[in-house]
């Protein structure tokens, strides 16, 4: 593979040709990495939708130095040799990101106090970084009643940002997708195929990929705020998946089992429903040790460093 040089916020990096701007930025790391609410490196075809990762391409390539006329989604734009990208150094990008954050929030219920995702929610993180202190909307928000999609997963459509990740998980991980996006525009909803329950060995991963609290684990529902639980890396012999998970414990009790997420909130490996929902006894698992939470999110900032 040939290497190409790209400069992001004045930092130069060499990456393989065919890398996206976002992944090049992740190689550099730190605060120049654009936020990504819909892209998921393990899901083919993801990204391009939420527009939180928009960046300015100030120079297209060494060969064709013209700037790109519009802001580009960094998760879906490939780097070119000699490309110059501005993220946090571009006021235009920062303004757009603020606007996108506001768009994502105008129909959001802001029900963090009763949402199981609070503390590990990417929309919460995004709002801390780019949100306004005040709201500019006076109108009612669109509302849906929460529903069960299958016996293990709760859907709060009000909180969904339509990133399509859960649809892609169902398409790419399970043998039959029975849910999808119904309708158009801001009246879209995630829904199951008439009277079908989401019930599949790998469906629980939809919970982990959901960036917000739209899909939550019914077996963990209202058991605890995530920041009062302690995460431990653990594993077991599993015939269906790799069996490497994070246990979220309160005292000796295992309240929740999730996959292991990297610093961008993406699962390292998908896990099966057996591990996720059916093994909550301490002797089901070999504990490896406490898990360090690297995200700069709410849980990261408050308690976890000290755990």
């Amino acid at each position: 593979m040939s290497l190409v040089k790209v400069t992001i916020d004045q930092i130069e990096v060499e990456v393989e040709a065919g890398t996206t701007i976002l992944n090049a930025a992740r190689i550099i790391g730190g605060n120049i990495v654009p936020p990504a609410m819909c892209y998921y490196s393990k899901l083919e075809g993801s990204g391009g939708k939420c527009r939180t990762c928009l960046v300015k391409v100030a120079q297209g390539s060494a060969k064709d130095p013209r700037p790109m006329p519009k802001l580009m989604p960094s998760c879906r734009t490939l780097v070119q040799d000699g490309m110059v990208v501005q993220n946090i150094t571009s006021p235009e990008v920062m303004e757009a990101r603020k606007a996108i954050t506001e768009f994502l929030l105008i129909n959001h219920p802001l029900d963090c106090p009763v949402c199981d995702q609070a503390g590990e929610c990417h929309l919460q993180d995004l709002s801390y970084d780019h949100g306004l202190a005040d709201t500019q909307t006076v109108e009612d928000r669109r509302t849906f009643a929460p529903i069960d999609i299958g016996d293990k997963i709760k859907l709060h459509m009000n909180r969904c940002i339509l990133c399509y990740r859960c649809v892609m998980v169902a398409d790419q991980l399970t043998d039959h997708r029975v849910h999808g996006v119904l309708g158009r525009g801001d009246h879209c909803e995630i829904s199951t195929h008439i009277l079908k329950a989401v019930d599949n060995d790998f469906s629980g991963n939809m919970i982990d990929v959901c960036p917000v609290g739209a899909l939550t684990d019914k077996t963990f529902r209202f058991k605890s705020r995530v920041w009062f639980t302690k995460p431990f890396d653990a594993h077991r012999e599993c015939t269906k998946c790799i069996g490497k998970v994070v246990l979220w414990k309160k005292g000796d009790e295992i309240l929740r089992v999730t996959g292991r997420k990297d610093k961008y909130g993406e699962l390292e490996e998908f896990i099966c429903n057996d591990c996720r929902f059916e093994h909550k006894e301490p002797n089901d698992w070999q504990i490896e040790g406490p898990r360090k939470i690297e995200r700069h999110s709410v849980i990261g900032q408050n308690h976890y460093e000290k755990l």
Binding site: C50, I106, D186
Partner: peptide
């Protein structure tokens, strides 16, 4: 435009309805 937005991307999905309101 609010009615016809496909809803894939946030600015159009949310912005069209907001402008209409």
């Amino acid at each position: 435009y609010h009615h016809e937005s496909c809803g894939q991307c946030s600015p159009c999905r949310e912005g069209t309805g907001w402008m209409e309101r």
